[in-house]
Measured scan of single mutants.
Amino acid sequence: QAPETKIVDKSRVACDGGEGALGHPRVWLQIPEDTGWVECPYCDCKYVLKGSKADAL
């Protein structure tokens, strides 16, 4: 199944896999201003900063 994409309001987000005990260790991710998105290294969930150029795609 394809990784999930989430639109977020802040450039710093936490990801834990979203499945409680079945998820992964919580990691904090920083969305770079130049790209407007970041992917979780564990679950490949893509976080897109709302209003960024990546959000316009």
Rank of each mutant, 00 (worst) to 15 (best):
L49G: 14
A21P: 12
I7H: 06
I7M: 08
P41V: 05
E19Q: 09
Y42T: 05
V38C: 00
K6D: 03
S11Y: 07
H24N: 02
D9G: 06
L22I: 05
G17C: 08
T35V: 12
G20C: 07
E19C: 15
V13D: 01
E19V: 09
G17N: 03
K50V: 11
P25I: 11
G51W: 00
E33F: 10
E19T: 08
A14G: 03
G18P: 13
C45F: 15
L49M: 08
V27H: 03
E19W: 07
A2K: 13
R26Q: 06
A14S: 09
S52H: 04
A54F: 00
L29D: 02
I31D: 04
P41L: 03
G18Y: 07
Q30Y: 12
A2N: 11
K6N: 07
K6E: 04
D34R: 05
A56Y: 12
A56R: 12
D55F: 00
R12W: 14
G36D: 04
C43H: 01
T5W: 15
K53L: 12
G18F: 07
A14T: 07
G23M: 09
L49E: 15
P41D: 03
W37P: 01
G20R: 02
G36N: 02
C15H: 00
C43D: 00
E4R: 15
S11E: 07
E19D: 10
V8L: 01
Q30P: 05
P41I: 06
A2L: 14
W28K: 06
A56H: 13
I7P: 03
P25S: 05
I7D: 01
G36V: 04
W37Y: 13
V38Q: 01
D55E: 09
D34K: 04
Q1S: 12
A54S: 06
V8H: 02
G51T: 05
G18H: 12
A21H: 08
I7A: 05
V48I: 13
V48M: 05
K6F: 04
G23A: 15
L57S: 14
P32F: 05
K46N: 09
G23F: 06
L57F: 08
R12G: 04
C40P: 09
P25K: 08
P32Y: 05
G17R: 01
P3H: 15
L29R: 01
G20L: 06
Y42H: 05
Y42K: 13
G23W: 13
G17M: 04
Y42A: 09
T35P: 10
P25G: 05
K50C: 14
A21T: 09
K53Y: 09
G17L: 01
V8K: 03
E4A: 14
P32N: 08
A54C: 14
G36K: 02
E39F: 14
P25C: 09
D34N: 07
T35W: 06
L57W: 04
Y42G: 02
L22A: 11
A21V: 11
K50R: 14
V27E: 05
T35S: 07
L22T: 10
L29W: 03
K6H: 15
K50H: 10
T35Q: 09
W28Y: 09
V8P: 04
L57A: 13
P32M: 05
K53E: 12
Q1M: 15
K46Q: 03
A54P: 04
P25D: 10
P3D: 09
I31Q: 01
D9K: 05
A2Q: 13
V8R: 03
E19H: 04
Y47P: 15
V38F: 01
E33D: 08
A56E: 10
D9V: 09
C40L: 10
C43M: 02
C15K: 00
C45I: 15
A2S: 11
G51E: 10
V13K: 03
V13G: 02
C45E: 00
K10M: 08
H24E: 03
G23K: 14
E39W: 13
A56G: 09
D16H: 06
W28H: 09
A14D: 04
G51F: 00
W28G: 06
C15D: 00
T5L: 11
D44K: 15
K50M: 10
I31R: 02
K46H: 07
P25L: 08
D34F: 05
T5R: 07
G20V: 05
S11G: 06
R12C: 14
T5V: 15
A2P: 13
V38E: 02
D34T: 07
H24W: 05
W37N: 02
D16L: 06
E19M: 08
C40N: 09
A54R: 00
R12N: 09
Q30M: 12
G36I: 03
C15Y: 00
D34L: 09
A2C: 15
P32K: 03
L57P: 10
E4D: 13
P32V: 04
V38M: 06
R12F: 13
Q30E: 13
Q1N: 12
K53F: 09
P41W: 06
T5C: 15
P32I: 05
E4L: 15
